[in-house]
């Protein structure tokens, strides 16, 4: 029981990650693959952010007072995962934009965005 309460966040995140992974490897539509990659990416962000949470802590912005009692907070959640993930989100969108531009070009050249049809056209040549 203690394990379940302490580790459930990782398991949910792993489930989401594997859903994204499944879409990437099992679906043949290129846009669907990018969507799967996006789901995977967000799950990784969530994994890092859950590791930064400290019980009883609050967001690391100083000085922090409780909104009803007015007490000053002494414990804070870890700011470092947030910093890493802020960078990762922006880089993730940059790679997504790049992938989508490539898909547009592939559609122009082959007239389709289904992986198997593209491969079949390649074999014919």
């Amino acid at each position: 029981m203690r394990e379940i309460l302490g580790l459930y966040n990782y398991w949910v995140v792993i489930f989401l990650m594997m859903t994204g992974f499944y879409v990437v490897i099992a679906r043949r539509n290129l846009i669907k693959k990018v969507i799967g990659l996006n789901i995977f990416q967000i799950s990784v962000f969530l994994l890092y952010i859950t590791m930064g949470k400290v019980t009883g802590g609050t967001a690391p912005i100083l000085p922090a007072r409780h909104f009803t009692t007015g007490e000053e907070f002494q414990t804070f959640s870890n700011p470092l995962p947030s910093v890493l993930i802020l960078t990762a989100i922006v880089v993730g969108v940059a790679t997504t934009a790049m992938a989508l531009a490539l898909i547009v070009r592939i559609h122009e050249a082959y007239g389709t965005i289904e992986e198997d049809e593209i491969l079949a056209q390649d074999r014919e040549q």
């Binding site: 952010i49 949470k53 802590g57 967001a59 804070f76 959640s77």
Partner: peptide
């Protein structure tokens, strides 16, 4: 993420 104390993210 907001509940996990990461408002910026």
């Amino acid at each position: 993420m907001l509940i996990l104390d990461a408002p910026d993210v």
